[in-house]
Amino acid sequence: MNRHLVLLIGRRFLAAATSLVFVVVTVFAITNVLPGDATDALLGQGATPQAVAAMRHNLGLDRSVFVRFWFWLWGILHAEFGNSLLNGLSVADAIGPRLHNSLLLAGASAAVSVPVSLFLGVTSAIWKDTVYDRVVSILTLGMVSVPEFVIATIAVYVFAVRLHLLPALADVGSVHSLRQFLSAFFMPVASLALVTLAQMVRMTRAAMADTLSAPYIEMALLKGVGPIRLILVHAIPNAIGPIVNAVALSLSSLLGGVVVIEVVFTYPGISGLMVDAVSSRDVPTVQACALVFCVTYLFLTTFADIVTILSLPRGRKT
């Protein structure tokens, strides 16, 4: 039984490793199909052939794809992502502090949205088809159906423009007191939490409702089990796997949300850097940022799957 479990988890890790390889290769492949672009971007259209050739040599672009891939991979393994094509500074140095800010933002939002949506999701599954459930359903359906920036803009409009309560722009650099900290972070964190909340609520509700419709729940009712025991002892242990999975999947939508929120609030995080890099086609920076995001995402999904595997009931593990 236990060997079986180890095998399952091992297989999951193997899948994660495969995905990681896929991600790394894809990121490299996409950013290298048009090798001319880097020099174009740096030197402009009118550059002399000699200048281009020299540039290509400097950047190592005249070597074979495999050699370049190897050097690039070697660099990543040493946290060395190359230099920005825009300003020539080390990409790793640019990312460092911004990554910290982004993780802070994402972490704070998750800390708000996860408990709230677990509560909303589980309770609306329990009180399925009541007015409460309908209201939650409609609101969350509306929220998953609009792009992230809409929610963020509405938040800015209401809190900053209408109510003048909070600064619309996050000025993390000048945070000196708790009060400032709260007001600088509140808007982005609240918007990001809202963005992820809706989907998490919906998926949690679906997972819980599925469990609650199982025959063994009806059986427990027929044994005279009360509502609290029914939820805690009979439903939660079976729903926990799907719920964790739902939460992890929604947290990954947080990664998408982070990009939009950081731009709306000009929050000094990694996504702002990436979006600017995309506009200016600064490939090394884009590569590095994409890798950071993808690895985080991979980590989340793998973690969720392993929790699901661990929560499978005995005798059901396949």
Binding site: I30, T31, L255, G256, V259, V283
Partner: peptide, 16 residues
């Protein structure tokens, strides 16, 4: 295993 918005950013960075 690549988030959709990220993938879009990556491709657009290259292909415009």
């Amino acid at each position: 295993s690549i988030p959709s918005l990220l993938f879009a950013l990556l491709v657009i960075a290259v292909f415009g």
